[in-house]
Each structure stands twice: as structure tokens, then as C-alpha cells.
Amino acid sequence: MDELITYGPELAQGFLENIKLALVGLVVSFILGTILVAMRVSPTPVLRAAGTAYVNVVRNTPLTLVLAFSALGLSDQLGLVFSDQPETNSFWLVGLGLGAYTAAFVCEALRAGINTVPMGQAEASRAIGLTFFQTLTMIILPQAFRAVIAPLGSVVIAMIKNTTVATAGGLLTDSAATMKIVFDTTGASIPIFLGVIAAFMVLILPIGYFTGWLSRKLAVVR
């Protein structure tokens, strides 16, 4: 127990970095996932093919590879730099990578949601003169989104847990450094493991309950 108290503040600091990473991933994945699903249902074959290819490639690539590529490949090989500070730079790159990865799952959840929206909704929308894009954004996606709030919650939960892959891979530099110091000094301490698990539970459990509640509240009645 002593170890947990001693290293508590530093662990909390690292944990906070994971939360920040998850927030970046959340924003990136929802924006990109929505764009991807729009591509996958668009009437343009090229866009459909590109969306499908993205989802298939990303979903079948190990997350470690995606994150390692984002942290190392993007900045070193492609010269993508957000900040002079190496830690800040790798944080954004990893956040982007996590978002890009999770976007494929957000896209597929939304696509399942689109399948729950009856064809007649889109037809009625086109029949009053709304364009494809208006129909998608005003009629189809809002209903699709409400139908899959709970599955989207699961995607978010998986993503939060995936932030630890970045930590373990040493890509989230601050958290990784903390973890290394803690393990080097204490060995694999049971209290520390339990403490970190508890922290994740406190973060994740409410998300499951909240999305479950929200999906019931916003359900579209037909």
C-alpha cells in the first residue's frame, strides 16, 4: 500500500495524460468516423471504395503498429511536427493515431446505425428536395447516431483502455517514464496494479452507465 501512496501523485499525473490522450482520440475518431461513414454510403463509387479500404486496413492492423507509426513514422519520415517540444509532439501524434484507428470502429458502429433507419426516411427527405448531403446529415445520421449510442460507448471504452498501449509502448512519454520508474523501484507491485485498475474503473464504469441511459433517453420511437 505504501508504494501506491508514495507514487500516487506521479501515477495520477501519468493517468491524466492517458485521459487527455483519450479526449484527443475521442474528438478525432468521431469526426473522422463520421466522414468515413458518409463516404461508405455515398453514391460516388470512388469515395465508397476509399472508405471501405480505410476501414478494412485500419481494423486489421495491430494498434501497436498504428501508434508506433504515428509516433515515429509520421514525424521522422513524413516530417509532421506539431510542436518543438518532443513530448508535446509525440502526444499529438499518438492522439491522432489513436483517433485514426478508433475512427474505423466509430464508422462501423454508425453504419450499423444507418441500417436501422428505414429507407422511407431518406426517400421522404429526397422527395422534399433535400440533397444527398442534407439527407445524410439532417435525417439519416442523427437517427443512426441515436440507435448506436451504447455500441459507441463500447468503442470509447475500448479506446480509453487502448491509451495504455501507448503508455506500454513508451510512446506516451510522461506516463511511460512514470511507469518505468515505478516498476524499476518497486518491482511489479500488486497495490499499484490494483490502484491503476481502480482508476480506470472509476473512469470507465460511468461511461457505460451514461451511454446506456443516454441511448434509452434519445431512442427514436417509430
Binding site: 428505414p118 426516411q121 437517427q143 417509430r222
Partner: peptide, 19 residues
């Protein structure tokens, strides 16, 4: 889209926007 806005359509299954 403009043409469709000039031709109303009423469906068997109503198709009101559910949300």
C-alpha cells in the same frame, strides 16, 4: 433536388421524420 421540391409525395407508410 429543385424538381423534387416542386413535386410533393405522400407515401403509404407516411415516412415522417421520426426524430
Amino acid at each position: 433536388a429543385r424538381l423534387r421540391s416542386e413535386v410533393g409525395m405522400v407515401f403509404q407508410s407516411f415516412n415522417l421524420f421520426a426524430h
